[in-house]
């Protein structure tokens, strides 16, 4: 499946505050790419720009699917979902007073997604068996780890090709973080999903990523071609590995 995401020269912000400055980044089909950075550096803003929730002020976001190029910066969030881009938002953002099954069904709201609803539901339950057992439970009453699984499963319901995962580790215990990251890795390996994951937990993210970017104050400061290159980078050592560079 030919797919690629190319972001170039992206500026975005809220009013006078610039959250992103000249961000360029690319993701090729089948990859898992990590977007690393601590809180407040613009990771979520970038993810929201790709999903169509925040309009960039400048720059382009090109999604190439089977030879056709779409500029996501000009499309609505609805159209972007139809193109096969799904996002697992930071903090999960489930509908707490709806059941697990109802949350999943909402993931398949778009007409194109409704056609594959039975297959996708089967896939979601096969990937996360606990959701099948708890399908009539209210989402808000589940544990944090289960909620994260539901948020990922809900994104799968729209038959995505590109999965955006924003801070999957937030609010989870170390064991659950590890399990969640492993699951995301499996989605890439088994289903061939292309994944762009924003994360601040460096060591967990590089377990499944093939390469990564580091964003500081809204600018990409490191674009590493491999995990080893990331580990060897001075900025990474200073930010994450505690070493004096």
């Amino acid at each position: 499946m030919a797919l690629s995401l190319v972001i170039s020269g992206l500026d975005a912000g809220y009013g006078a505050v610039k959250a992103l400055r000249g961000v360029s980044l690319n993701v090729r089909g089948g990859e898992t790419v990590a977007l690393l950075g601590t809180n407040g550096n613009g990771k979520s803003t970038l993810m929201k720009c790709i999903a169509g929730l925040v309009r960039p002020q400048q720059g382009s976001i090109s999604l190439d699917i089977d030879g056709t190029t779409h500029d996501l910066a000009r499309l609505s969030a609805e159209d972007i979902v139809d193109l096969g881009v799904a996002m697992v938002p930071e903090g999960r953002r489930l509908f707490p007073r709806l059941t697990v099954l109802e949350n999943l069904m909402l993931g398949a709201f778009r007409k194109a997604a409704r056609r594959n609803i039975d297959e996708n539901l089967k896939l979601a339950f096969a990937t996360f068996p606990v959701l099948k057992e708890r399908q009539s439970q209210l989402a808000g009453t589940m544990s944090g780890g289960q909620q994260q699984m539901l948020a990922i499963a809900r994104a799968l319901m729209s038959s995505p090709r590109l999965l955006l995962v924003d801070e999957p580790s937030v609010g989870l215990s170390p064991l659950l973080v590890s399990q969640t990251i492993t699951k995301i890795g499996e989605l890439n390996q088994k289903l061939g999903l292309t994944v762009l994951m924003a994360e601040q937990n460096f060591n967990q993210a590089i377990r499944i990523a093939s390469r990564g970017y580091i964003i500081v104050h809204g600018e990409i400061v490191v674009a590493a071609k491999s995990v080893d290159e990331l580990k060897g980078n001075d900025i990474v050592k200073r930010l994450y590995l505690g070493g004096a560079a």
Binding site: A51, G52, L53, S76, A77, E78, I80, V81, D82, A86, M87, P89, R93, L94, F95, P96, R97, L98, E102, M105, L106, G107, F109, R110, A113, R114, R154, A155, S158
Partner: peptide, 26 residues
């Protein structure tokens, strides 16, 4: 409100509008 796509979206819109946009729902 419980069995249709639109009905579920109506109950969801009261809970989290932005999350609903991520599902491709206005």
């Amino acid at each position: 409100l419980s069995r249709t796509f639109m009905g579920r979206a109506i109950r969801a819109v009261a809970q989290d509008q932005e999350a609903l946009r991520l599902m491709g729902v206005n």
